[in-house]
Write a protein that binds this DNA or RNA. Structure first.
Lengths: 132, 132
DNA sequence: CTACGGTTTCCAGTTACTGGAAGGTCAAGT
DNA sequence: ACTTGACCTTCCAGTAACTGGAAACCGTAG
């Protein structure tokens, strides 16, 4: 499949897909005419990249996660350790995302009209407590 | 409070905090010695920025969300519309993050030893269906 | 055989930081 | 009073992750 189709299916622009190939995240076939030819496994990788990038993981983190599948030589304990570390980070992100949702829900529901400017939502803006 | 303390409390490096001031997301006081002086409201804004940036929202999206509080002239309907749009996006992110968690959970739990390379997890890597 | 949309490479520009140099500030120790 | 070390300041350069645009090739429909 051509890059345009892969772009549609993955939700990533063609430019970004080529960029991911440049930095070695992907290695699509080439057709006789020189066009890139994407398999459905390629599209899965691209969808994964689209999702994890949009959730705030870095390209290097994505590369590591993708390698958990690709590298058959890798130690299982290694795979498990990396996966567990990311799981902890995901759990944290889920909590923060839910907090953000609650805060915006409150803003949308209760701060209409004259009330809004007085709403002390900013106190709950970013949760409570200190980092570290 | 000095920038170092604000950095600790917000989880952002001082460099990033100065950058956010450069692009107009923040306007801390200055002490007589020229040092930036952060209020607790400033720290709340910074914590909000740290969280929403790490969850994949762009700086411009963050600017818009912060303006929902700051701008007393803004129409309530406008505030509500923006908040609702972001809520939909957050709901989507929550689903994708949970999907990522399940996938990694499966990888960590069931793909140990010889089993792993054969696991067809990549099929579930990025969920199913097509974007758009 | 000519449009026109999709594809190629390459190079430049943008966003959002990040590192490092050169120097000013401040509180603690001698 | 003086020095030391951790903090702060500005400025300028570099990096990460795209993004836009030019010039040229490919492929199908009329």
């Amino acid at each position: 499949m051509n890059i345009g189709t892969a772009a549609e299916k993955s939700g990533l622009p063609p430019k970004t897909i080529r960029y991911y190939e440049d930095i070695g995240l992907l290695r699509p076939d080439r057709a006789d005419n020189g066009y890139r030819d994407y398999s459905s496994a390629d599209v899965h990788r691209l969808r994964f990249l689209q999702r994890s990038r949009s959730l705030g993981f870095s390209v290097e983190e994505c590369r590591q996660l993708l390698s958990l599948y690709g590298d058959k030589e890798r130690e299982s304990a290694d795979v498990k350790a990396i996966a567990e570390a990311k799981l902890a980070e995901i759990a944290r992100k889920l909590v923060e995302l839910a907090g953000l949702r609650d805060m915006l829900r409150h803003l949308a529901d209760h701060c209409n009209g004259d009330d809004r400017p007085d709403c002390p939502i900013i106190d709950g803006l970013a949760g409570h407590g200190t980092v570290q």
